[in-house]
């Protein structure tokens, strides 16, 4: 029999992953108004790179992690420069479709390069659980959770206190006006995509040992999207809460109802949220200040 608390913690890991995925999306949306469908593939590229560096090439772990994240950042810069920047000024719709096209392309490239196999990556640290006031945790789980919190804190500070962070919000509100005020829209776009690269690279690296590396792993993007919507598509805090909620809900329904229900539950939640409260379940606590 599986321990209930183990399930909860597994749900929390999953939720953390969803949340970072959603945060990347919200970040891009906040600054550029684009919904990035390519998120999942960026993460997959990070995971595959880690696998190639650490397992195939047997580079040291720390170097592999850094290089994998760097690879995702470079990919992001390419995407921004060659696919999205030419579309600045075109209908928003086209930019969103462009990320769909990128999703198809990158996924196909992954299949061509690495094949359809399912690879596994050895865990970074011991999986023996430790206990904090009665709750069993593993280092892996707590790392994901801590990383998630750190990123949110950094983003929060970034948007609140840095000049460029404020510029980003201006660009989202009105690109033309922002450009007239001397804010470089291009620079903001690049920066957002670099930040997104760091986020998605990190999540790919963190996920690789837990869920394995396989071509369709990018579909987690849809979950990130769902989390972003439930969280209100504006607040990072909302995304974390929604991510944890969905992660736990999915894990529990996967075990107590059926594995098939696992995914259907999250979509059902989404459709419910869209029907009842299209602005998201979590009120915009953070948005008002961010």
């Amino acid at each position: 029999m599986i321990n209930f608390f183990d399930l909860i913690t597994y749900g929390i890991i999953l939720g953390g992953i969803y949340a970072i995925c959603a945060i990347g999306m919200i970040l891009i949306f906040k600054a550029t108004d684009i919904i990035s469908i390519v998120q999942g593939e960026l993460m997959a590229v990070g995971a595959y790179c880690l696998y190639s560096f650490a397992v195939v090439l047997k580079w040291p772990l720390g170097l592999s992690i850094l290089m994998a994240i760097a690879a995702v950042i470079i990919l992001c810069l390419f995407i921004e420069r060659f696919a999205l920047r030419p579309l600045i000024g075109a209908p928003l719709w086209n930019s969103i479709m462009a990320t769909v096209a990128l999703m198809i392309t990158i996924q196909a490239v992954i299949r061509v390069t690495w094949g359809p196999e399912h690879f596994s990556v050895p865990p970074y640290m011991s999986r023996t659980p430790f206990t904090i006031s009665g709750i069993r945790l593993t280092y892996e789980e707590s790392t994901i959770f801590v990383v998630c919190l750190i990123y949110v804190l950094l983003l929060f500070l970034f948007f609140k206190y840095t000049k460029i962070g404020k510029a980003m919000r201006a660009v989202q509100l009105d690109k033309e006006a922002a450009a007239l005020m001397g804010i470089s829209v291009k620079k903001v776009f690049s920066l957002v995509w670099i930040m997104n690269g760091i986020l998605m690279g990190t999540i790919g690296v963190l996920m690789a040992p837990i869920l394995g590396v396989y071509p369709t792993m990018g579909f987690i993007m849809i979950k990130g999207f769902i989390v972003a919507v439930i969280g209100g598509f504006a607040s990072f805090g909302g995304a974390i809460l929604a991510g944890l909620l969905l992660g736990v809900l999915e894990t529990l329904s996967g075990v107590y109802i059926s594995t098939a229900m696992k995914d259907i539950v999250s979509f059902a939640v989404l459709i419910l949220v869209l029907l009842i409260k299209p602005t998201g379940l979590i009120p915009e606590i953070v948005t008002k200040r961010v």
Partner: peptide, 22 residues
């Protein structure tokens, strides 16, 4: 030629159309 090569081509065509031939 390759099983998934066509998908790469689909994706790139898709992208090119969006950018150059909206």
């Amino acid at each position: 030629r390759a099983e998934h090569f066509q998908e790469v081509i689909y994706g790139l065509i898709f992208l090119a159309i969006l950018i150059y031939m909206p």
